[in-house]
Design a protein around this nucleic acid. Sequence first.
DNA 1: GGCACTAGGTTGCATATACAACTCAATGTC
DNA 2: GACATTGAGTTGTATATGCAACCTAGTGCC
Lengths: 123, 123
Amino acid sequence: MRSRRVNRVISKLYDDALRELSLSSAQLNQLVAISVGQPLGMRAIDLGRALDIEKSTLSRNLARMQDAGWIRQIPQGKHTLLELTPAGESLLAEAYPKWQAAQASAERLLGPQLTAALLKLEP
Amino acid sequence: MRSRRVNRVISKLYDDALRELSLSSAQLNQLVAISVGQPLGMRAIDLGRALDIEKSTLSRNLARMQDAGWIRQIPQGKHTLLELTPAGESLLAEAYPKWQAAQASAERLLGPQLTAALLKLEP
DNA sequence: GGCACTAGGTTGCATATACAACTCAATGTC
DNA sequence: GACATTGAGTTGTATATGCAACCTAGTGCC
């Protein structure tokens, strides 16, 4: 109950901050993770594992982000490699200050203990 | 990022535990909250406020639960009062042990610090 | 080589979620 | 009393999410 509610509240915070970029919090998460995997190209399945996102969910989210021109999906045999496009990179750059502001608000809302415990979370 | 991921993992845990009852974690949350408001009948808008659920989301979730026969929505002038039906009550009773087991798994997964911090959360 | 198996990806379906725009009832205000 | 305002609820549209079923490219076994 708590995790669902926290998620609604915190996601809304980020969604509000990112709305003018037409970027959702879910998409930001995924773009950031893909960006971390650059420049080798992250494999889609590994992104799913890193974020605990089911493969069908991810498949559709990636399709939307490709349609938006933010990423490229490159079939690599059995796998799919993910790359940010230049548009994706500059979107991330634009999102960065807004993301930081939202992060600060989230920490204020959650308090230091919960924030620390969340960040410490391992698997 | 963390709150979204935690939510996916924890919700799946509850969804798995409740699947045989054809009950989702979101629905369990809402039923429990409605049950707390018994026997006076909780107002829909207050349920939304208590769980930070947007009114349109709640409207459709409640409709599904009414279709399932678990709750009744009683128009009361401008408001809607929510009641569990007997079927809803017995569903909650059935769900209780599964809910407790999932709760224990969740606590194990999150660890004592994060669990405590989540439960202590106020607003 | 051929065939079973596995693993990554997609598609059909369903729920959960939110925003925007709307309806309608209650509540003012004059 | 008439009209504007507000607040609860519903509906249209879109994204996010997951399960089940499917497709297909590698992989392994013989």
